[in-house]
């Protein structure tokens, strides 16, 4: 069963404009790699545990002393085995998490995103007064910090192929670091349930090459 699962994943994994498994930016790629690694690890652990259970049915009954069994099953397999795996995973996860944080640098561009039921308004501090509705423009290949907030209920900013999501919470401004590798259009969705218009609530992310970005900021495309 797990084999078919894996096959299904690899078949369907690399298409779809909302797929987290066809990453188009460094954050999404780090996370996709993390996922594939964890999937392989999880399948190995699952097979190992299931094998242990199956073997219990096939082996002739023999009596061993209880202290020995406690040592094998509870101390070695129950304690030491998961602790070593989890420690490695935790450290790996924290390192990736640190890498994805929005640290300040000269490269970074800031965009403000404001959600309200059911539309996104984006404004660009680099060009005061410029606003776009439901379409977010960024330059490709440069880190962008999205400052996310909401005017009514909680929403969430999510462009699955580019990065993870960040909630838009009324009264708070949350910052999400995103970056798109190449120019192109990427689908974005609001990923926190917001009532009757939720299903179709989304936006489009357009990543520009440097010249197109300059002309966007100059107000020539929009």
């Amino acid at each position: 069963m797990s084999l078919t699962f894996l096959t299904l994943f690899t078949l369907g994994g690399c298409q779809g404009e909302l797929s987290t498994l066809s990453p188009a930016g460094p954050a999404a790629r780090d996370i996709a790699t993390l996922w594939w690694g964890m999937l392989v690890g999880a399948l190995l652990i699952l097979s190992f545990v299931m094998l242990l259970i199956l073997m219990a049915f096939r082996r002739p009954a023999k009596t061993a002393d209880e202290a020995q069994q406690v040592r094998v099953w509870i101390v070695n397999l129950g304690l030491i085995f998961p602790v070593s795996i989890l420690l490695a995973l935790l450290v790996y996860g924290l390192v990736i998490g640190e890498r994805l944080l929005p640290r300040s640098s000269a490269e970074v561009i800031t965009v403000e995103a404001e959600a309200s039921r059911w539309s996104w308004t984006f404004s660009y501090p680099d060009r005061p007064g410029l606003q776009t509705q439901d379409v977010l423009h960024i330059p490709a290949g440069r880190p962008v910090d999205i400052e996310i907030t909401s005017t009514d209920v909680i929403h969430s900013f999510w462009v699955p192929r580019v990065a993870g999501k960040m909630d838009a919470v009324p009264g708070h401004v949350n910052v999400l670091r995103i970056e798109a590798d190449r120019p192109g259009r990427y689908a974005g969705r609001s990923a926190e349930f917001s009532g009757s218009g939720y299903a179709s609530f989304g936006f489009t992310l357009i990543a520009h090459d440097p010249t197109a970005w300059e002309s966007f900021l100059a107000g020539e495309t929009g």
Binding site: D30, W35, M38, L90, L94, S156, A163, K165, E192, F193
Partner: peptide
């Protein structure tokens, strides 16, 4: 694992 949850959440 925090980064994975940023994608999988909701």
């Amino acid at each position: 694992v925090v980064p994975f949850d940023w994608q999988a959440h909701d």
